[in-house]
Amino acid sequence: MENMEEGWWIHTPTKAPHLLNPVVLAYIGDSVFELLVRQYLVSQPNHKLHHLHKHATQFVSAKAQCALLEKWQPFLTEEEKDIAKRGRNAKSGTPPKNADTADYRQATALECLVGYLYYAKRSERLRELMAIAFNELTEGEEPIKEEDR
């Protein structure tokens, strides 16, 4: 168990992140992604519960996560693309009734990548990708593209 002052990892897995099942990475990535979305929304001025919930669902639905992964693609490293591909191709059960199968698989890919970055303790990289998600880049600033890494 690690000290919370060193990060947000209280219990680390028994395996290295790249050895974890992609569905397991997606499982934790789903929670981490939702936490990051909620933190962002609470940092904004409107704290009405209905507003927070409405805006959170714009990020955490399978369709929204599919679109976000597509937006992230030009900025992902080969390693990150490979992790996302593992997540997309993983057998993760039956998609929810309200989600398209292709969107659900892409959402699982995004969650797998987030889970991987979380357990690899790459919080700065998560911040970069989430800044793209929230369109928080400062004016004129471009996220680092894969070929520039």
Rank of each mutant, 00 (worst) to 15 (best):
Q39R: 12
C66K: 02
I10N: 04
R127C: 15
S43P: 04
A56M: 14
S61Y: 01
L52K: 01
Y27Q: 07
A133Y: 06
E111K: 11
H47I: 12
A26G: 10
P17V: 08
S123E: 13
G115S: 07
V32E: 11
R127T: 15
V60Y: 01
R88C: 12
A90Y: 05
A64P: 03
L117K: 00
E139I: 10
K97C: 05
A26T: 04
T108C: 09
C112D: 07
Q44V: 07
I132D: 15
D148Q: 07
E6C: 02
P45K: 04
Y119G: 11
P45D: 11
E70N: 12
D148S: 05
H53T: 11
L126S: 02
C112Y: 09
E139R: 08
A120R: 00
M130I: 05
L110N: 07
L117Y: 01
K97F: 10
F75H: 13
G29E: 07
L126E: 12
E111V: 00
L69C: 05
M1C: 05
G29P: 11
E5Q: 06
N46D: 15
L52A: 05
Y119D: 13
G140I: 08
E111T: 04
P22E: 05
G115F: 04
W72E: 15
E147A: 04
G140W: 07
A26L: 08
R122A: 12
E2M: 01
K145D: 10
K85I: 05
E34A: 09
Q44K: 13
T108F: 05
F59V: 06
R38Y: 03
K97L: 14
R86C: 08
R122E: 15
D148P: 01
D103T: 01
G29T: 01
D82L: 03
E5T: 04
K121N: 09
H47L: 15
M1E: 14
C66L: 07
T57D: 11
Q106G: 02
H50Q: 08
P143A: 08
E78R: 01
V114L: 13
E136L: 14
H11V: 11
N135P: 00
W72K: 10
A64L: 09
K91V: 07
P17M: 09
A67W: 00
V24T: 14
E6M: 03
C66E: 13
A109C: 11
F75A: 08
A26E: 09
D148F: 05
F59N: 12
A56F: 02
Y118A: 06
V114H: 13
E79G: 00
K91Y: 08
E70F: 11
H18T: 09
T101S: 10
G87M: 04
P143N: 02
S43L: 08
E80M: 10
T101W: 02
Q58K: 04
A67S: 06
N89L: 15
T57L: 14
G29F: 05
I144L: 15
